[in-house]
């Protein structure tokens, strides 16, 4: 493939703290996510998954190495450019949903669009579509405190998916969801990637990771394995034969 990746982590390391308290959360990780590709990251607690995602989203800086989003060096960006990048190109679903409590579900989802200059009514219409896609259109005018954990999570996902985000980063987006809803969320994420976005998904659940084209295994800050390139049609037929 000759196209440049939407996300490139180039040999990044991240050390938290100093000297004897130093924790090497990531150690020389290189990872590419191309347009149309969904990559899942799995690994035990503390293996560096959230650290990886925060670096990819420009929320944290690597100690060593560089992060590129759509070819631009995130470390070299001004605060303003970085903020614009996060608003326009990046969708982020946090491990704790990070909704704004004084805004309704629809307003939370519409906020990044409005900040980007969209008219309020247009932004609301897009927000309602996004809420519909994650199955909570009827909760559009509720405030986060009046929603269950799973419902709040779906609002956070809708917010990460609205607009033309080129890169969607999701940290355990299905944590508080039942299996049906979790799968619905994965379908939405998948179709967003099929439509050309790049996706990076952290999850503990293999069932959800399996929606990705590639699954990367982290342990102690190092990539220890990967399912490699997605299987071709031949191996698909093989697997049908064996079930």
């Amino acid at each position: 493939m000759t196209t440049s990746p939407i996300l490139l982590l180039d040999n990044v390391s991240r050390v938290h703290g100093h000297d004897e308290t130093a924790v090497r959360a990531l150690d020389g990780v290189t990872l590419r996510v191309h347009a149309g590709e969904l990559v899942a990251v799995m690994g035990p607690s503390g293996s560096g998954k959230s650290t990886l995602l925060n670096l990819a989203g420009g929320l944290d800086q690597p100690t060593v190495g560089q992060v590129f989003v759509e070819g631009a060096d995130v470390g070299a960006m001004s605060m303003r450019d970085l903020a614009a990048l996060r608003r326009r190109s990046l969708g982020f679903v946090f491990q704790d949903f990070n909704l704004i409590p004084s805004l309704t579900a629809a307003e939370n989802v519409a906020l990044p669009l409005e900040l980007d200059g969209l008219r309020v009514r247009k932004a609301r219409r897009i927000a309602l579509d996004a809420l519909e896609a994650v199955g909570i259109a009827d909760l559009a005018d509720r405030y986060p405190e009046h929603m269950s954990g799973g419902q709040q999570q779906r609002v956070a996902i809708a917010r990460a998916l609205v607009g033309n985000r080129r890169l969607v980063l999701a940290d355990e987006p299905t944590g508080a969801l039942d299996s049906q809803t979790g799968e619905a969320v994965l379908r939405v994420l998948r179709s967003r990637c099929d439509a050309g976005a790049g996706g990076l998904l952290v999850t503990h659940e293999a069932r959800h990771a399996a929606w990705a084209d590639r699954v990367v295994f982290l342990r102690d800050g190092v990539v220890v394995d990967s399912t490699g390139t997605p299987p071709g049609p031949e191996s698909l037929l093989d697997s049908v034969g064996t079930i």
Partner: peptide
């Protein structure tokens, strides 16, 4: 363990592809 997990995840990816291919 890691080799087995990767192999099983590949199998899971194949199954998920089949789910994707048939619409809900």
């Amino acid at each position: 363990v890691q080799t087995q997990r990767t192999a099983t995840l590949r199998h899971l990816q194949d199954l998920t592809k089949l789910k994707r291919a048939s619409s809900e």
